[in-house]
Simulated assay, not measured.
Amino acid sequence: MSRFFGEIRQLGYVVEDIEAAMDYWSRSLGVGPWYYNPKVPIRNYSYRGASYAPHNSVALANSGPLQVELIQTRNDVPSMYRDFQRAGHTGLQHVAYWTQQYDDDLERLMRQGFKPVMSGEVGENGRFVYFDTEYHPGTVIELSEVAGPKGRLFDTIRRAAQGWDGEEPVRPFPDLDTL
């Protein structure tokens, strides 16, 4: 178990072509179905203390209990994803820990010296923060709140992957307000 918050729950991959990546992961690796959102509604987004309006496409699927996230940036808004690509990388960009005690866990990490770089919200109780890599060279660490609708979405995605037969490999994100 991790000394942070238990298991790593998500691997986040930055890709150049999300449709091709979903096809590869589902057909070649058997991971799916993918829940795809062509424009994630991120609120209160901040990168290095400044506010921006990112346009990111995201696809989520599970392989057992581990969630895989594919991310494609669609505009040139400053982000850790853009930094990763500008450094010549694609592939695994972050690992995420999930929490229902976001404020307490964020405070604990900051006391340990972790520095928030990028943050925002997706739906109600769906805050996220990515930390500077200074103390963890390489892959970025994300803390993701999974209470409320976002947590229910993640449960839906995990259940859909159990016994998935390869049919309907790409599905739309359900409306978070209805979960």
Rank of each mutant, 00 (worst) to 15 (best):
140 V>S: 04
179 L>G: 02
112 Q>E: 15
34 W>V: 03
108 R>K: 10
58 V>M: 07
94 H>E: 03
84 F>M: 05
100 Q>N: 11
123 G>Y: 09
143 L>S: 04
88 G>E: 08
48 R>W: 13
170 V>F: 12
79 S>W: 06
75 N>T: 11
61 A>F: 15
85 Q>W: 05
116 P>W: 10
154 F>D: 01
28 S>Y: 15
61 A>Q: 12
89 H>T: 06
48 R>N: 11
103 D>C: 04
98 W>F: 15
123 G>F: 09
82 R>M: 10
91 G>N: 10
76 D>R: 11
172 P>A: 07
144 S>T: 12
79 S>K: 03
26 S>D: 04
98 W>Q: 04
28 S>I: 13
95 V>A: 06
112 Q>M: 14
72 Q>I: 02
117 V>I: 14
65 P>Y: 12
15 V>R: 00
83 D>M: 05
22 M>T: 07
44 N>S: 14
169 P>I: 02
155 D>G: 06
86 R>L: 15
31 V>Q: 04
165 D>P: 02
20 A>Y: 07
18 I>V: 10
23 D>T: 15
158 R>W: 15
30 G>Q: 05
149 P>K: 01
160 A>F: 12
118 M>C: 07
77 V>T: 15
175 D>V: 05
102 Y>D: 00
18 I>Y: 01
146 V>N: 04
95 V>D: 01
76 D>H: 12
138 G>P: 08
18 I>A: 00
